[in-house]
């Protein structure tokens, strides 16, 4: 078992699958995560589109059990968008039923979860200490910050969170979530609407690429969500995140060898490798996709800032 004895090492976490992967793909994926990675915490569940949830809801208990057996902490993530009667019911049930830990991603869950220990996901817009303090007072014990929050603000959040006994998690790998909408842009690209989408998003397991009219890759469409074309990747920044007391490093599942990605970040968090080696390995795993860290440096999110140019630490 690769769990850590060193409290200084942040937990390595795996965020929920953002895409419409088939039930079989998901089962195989999580089996590998369980058996072959040092990931500590796995977030399960459909966050983006409520229409997708029935396809694998039945598999979730078995997947969760497998992960728990492998020593992982399992957390169930709730929908980012809650509007329809069904979405409301799913959300309220998650908050009130069962004993599994929940990550709330929409304020629709906040009333029902009151008092019960819970996590807050990146869609909850926890940008400052005051909001953190209010929500911690209602049972939030762990928060994944918005991907766009710059480094200095992350440091202040980590400090405030430590005083409140709250964990702070930061996305360190994968496409950045940039927007959600009531409209499904996958369906729109195929001349359909959300109601008759026929799950065309399944064709793009790493998102549908949108390029500018002069051919520059720009964004990715994932159903109602818009993501970055680049994979957000905090590499040189890991040492800084450790220093300021960030307690969770989140990897988002992409269509790359995630076992190898997890190995790179495990080596990084333990200080086993230098960041240039990590960058080399990651670039090789993610061949064809650019890496970015602009948000963390208060710059345009798509940009990649190297150590020489950065002045954050």
């Amino acid at each position: 078992m690769m769990t850590s004895n060193l409290p200084a090492v942040a937990a390595l976490t795996l965020g929920p699958i953002a895409y419409h992967w088939s039930a079989e793909t998901r089962r195989d994926f999580y089996a590998k995560i369980a058996d072959e990675t040092p990931i500590d915490t796995v977030y399960l569940g459909e966050v983006i589109c409520s229409k997708r949830a029935p396809f694998f809801a039945n598999d979730l208990p078995e997947i969760a059990e497998r992960l728990i057996k492998a020593g992982k902490t399992v957390v169930f993530s709730s929908l980012a968008e809650v509007m329809t009667v069904r979405e409301r019911r799913i959300t309220t049930e998650m908050m009130t039923l069962g004993e599994a830990e929940v990550e709330v991603n929409n304020s629709a869950g906040l009333l029902a979860i009151d008092g019960r220990p819970h996590r807050l996901g990146p869609f909850m817009n926890v940008y400052n200490e005051e909001t953190l303090s209010v929500l911690a007072g209602r049972g939030a014990h762990h928060v994944c910050l918005p991907a766009e929050l710059p480094g200095p603000a992350v440091a202040l959040m980590a400090e405030a969170a430590a005083a409140l006994g709250v964990g702070i998690e930061v996305q360190v790998f994968g496409r950045a979530p940039l927007a959600t909408s009531a409209r499904c842009y996958h369906a729109r690209a195929h001349g359909r609407t959300k109601d008759n989408c026929r799950f065309v998003c399944e064709e793009d397991p790493d998102g549908m690429p949108l390029s500018t009219r002069d051919g520059v890759p720009f964004l990715r469409v994932n159903g109602v969500q818009t993501q970055s074309e680049t994979y957000l990747a905090l590499i040189e920044e890991i040492a800084y995140l450790k220093e300021i007391g960030v307690s969770g490093l989140r990897l988002m599942p992409q269509q790359v060898d995630m076992v190898s990605v997890a190995a790179v970040f495990d080596d990084l968090r333990r200080g086993m490798i230098e960041s240039n080696e990590a960058e080399e390995r990651l670039s090789e795993i993610c061949i064809g996709t650019r890496l970015s860290n602009g948000f963390f440096h208060g710059l345009a999110g798509y940009r990649r800032i190297t150590k020489a140019a950065a002045s954050f630490s």
């Binding site: 980012a80 968008e81 869609f123 817009n125 940008y127 918005p146 991907a147 766009e148 950045a176 979530p177 940039l178 927007a179 959600t180 909408s181 009531a182 409209r183 964004l219 818009t226 970055s228 602009g294 948000f295 208060g298 710059l299 345009a300 999110g301 798509y302 940009r303």
Partner: peptide, 21 residues
């Protein structure tokens, strides 16, 4: 507006200035 308001970082991704912040 098309995107869910308060949940859009498209401008920040492109320019470094955030709609939310």
């Amino acid at each position: 507006g098309l995107m869910v308001e308060g949940r859009c970082s498209l401008t920040n991704y492109t320019t470094g200035l955030s709609t939310n912040m």
